[in-house]
Design a protein around this nucleic acid. Structure first.
Lengths: 188, 188
DNA sequence: GTCTATACGCAGATAGAC
DNA sequence: GTCTATCTGCGTATAGAC
C-alpha cells in the first residue's frame, strides 16, 4: 500500500469518527486535518470536496457493515443467534450511543434532509441491515412479507433505543430494552 | 397584543417550522427573515443571537406540548385512551414524519451534540412526555418504577418509528407499527 | 506529495440612517 | 421599529512555492 493510500485511509477513518461524534455538517475541514495531523492544503490533494470525503466514509462504513454481517452469517450457524448478535450490538456499544447516538441512524437522519445528498447513499447501510435481517427471519420459516415486517420492527426498536438512550443518557435503560427485544426474538 | 409582539411571534413560529424541516444548524438568519418577510437588520431588534431564537422556539414548543397533554388529561377520562391518543399522534403526522422525522426527536438529537446548548433545553420536551406517560400508566395500577419503564418503552417505539419512517419514507409501515403499539397498550 | 498563502462566499452580528 | 450598509469570522476551495 502506497503512502498516499495510507494517508487517504487515515483521513477517511478520522472523518468517519468525527462525522459520527459531531455530525457531518458540524465537522469542518480544519477539524479533520487537525485530527489527522496534515495541513488543509495537503487535504485537497486527496479529496476535492467535502462531499467526496462523505462518499468515501459512507462507502467504507457500508463495506465494514457488509463484512460484519457476512461474518455473522458464516460464524453463527443458527439464524436466531445471528439476530441476537445484531441486537446485542446495541448493548455492546451503549457507551458511545449514550454520547453520540447510533452511528447509522444519526448520520442517516442528518443526511436525508440535505438536498444535495443522494438518498440512496444516506440510507444505504440501513437497507443493508434490513435485507440481512429479512434473510435471517425467512430462515426461521417466515414468508418474505412477514419477514420484512419483523425486520422493520427490529430496526424500529434498535433505532428507538438509540435515540432515547442518547436523550436520557441511561445505560440501564438500554440494557433493559435490549433484553426485552431479545425475548421477543426468542419467541419469534 | 402590540405589533412588535406579533412580529416576534411570527419569527418564532417561522423559525420553529424551519428548524424542524431543515434542522437548527442548517437554518440561517437569512432563511428566517426571508420567510417572515422582514430584513435581517429588523430581525436583530427582536432577537440578539441565534441561541435566543432557539430558546424562544423551544419554550414555545414546550408550552404547546404541555397544553396538549393537559387537554388530553381533561378531555379523555380513561388513562388508556390518553395513551392511545399519544401514540396515535404519530400515525396522524405520518406525512411530515416521512419527510422530516419527529420534530421532538430530531431536534433533541441535533441539539444534544452541540456543546454550547443546554442539555435540559434540548431534552425538555421528551422529559415532559415521559412524565406525562408515567402519570397515565400509574393510573392503570402500575408502581412508579414499572410505569416509568413502560413509558420509556412507548417513547422508544415512537422514536424508532419516526427514524425508520423517515429513512424508508413508508407510510404503511408507520401505520402498521403504530397499530402494533396500540395493541400492546391494550393489554398493558 | 506536502506545505503556506490566499481567495471567496456565507452566516452571525452591529451601526447608524430614516 | 425598520431599513441598508457593513464588519468579522469561519468554512470551502484554489494557487503555487518547495
Amino acid at each position: 500500500m502506497s503512502k498516499a493510500e495510507t494517508i487517504r485511509n487515515k483521513i477517511v477513518s478520522t472523518a468517519d469518527d468525527l462525522f459520527y461524534r459531531q455530525g457531518f455538517h458540524h465537522t469542518s475541514f480544519a477539524d479533520i486535518s487537525k485530527a489527522v495531523g496534515i495541513s488543509r492544503g495537503n487535504f485537497y490533494y486527496h479529496f476535492k470536496t467535502k462531499d467526496d470525503i462523505l462518499a468515501a466514509v459512507l462507502k467504507e462504513r457500508q463495506a465494514a457493515i457488509a463484512q460484519m454481517l457476512a461474518q455473522w452469517s458464516t460464524e453463527l450457524p443458527e439464524p436466531r443467534e445471528r439476530l441476537l448478535a445484531f441486537v446485542n450490538m446495541i448493548a455492546l456499544s451503549q457507551e458511545s450511543i449514550i454520547q453520540y447516538g447510533c452511528p447509522i441512524g444519526t448520520t442517516c437522519s442528518e443526511l436525508i434532509k440535505l438536498k444535495n445528498i443522494n438518498y440512496n447513499d444516506a440510507t444505504g447501510i440501513i437497507v443493508l441491515f434490513r435485507e440481512w435481517l429479512v434473510e435471517q427471519i425467512k430462515l426461521l420459516g417466515y414468508k418474505h412479507t412477514k419477514a420484512d415486517q419483523h425486520a422493520m420492527h427490529i430496526l424500529t426498536c434498535t433505532q428507538g433505543i438509540s435515540v432515547i438512550g442518547l436523550a436520557f443518557k441511561d445505560a440501564d435503560y438500554i440494557v433493559r430494552e435490549v433484553d426485552d427485544l431479545k425475548q421477543w426474538l426468542q419467541q419469534l
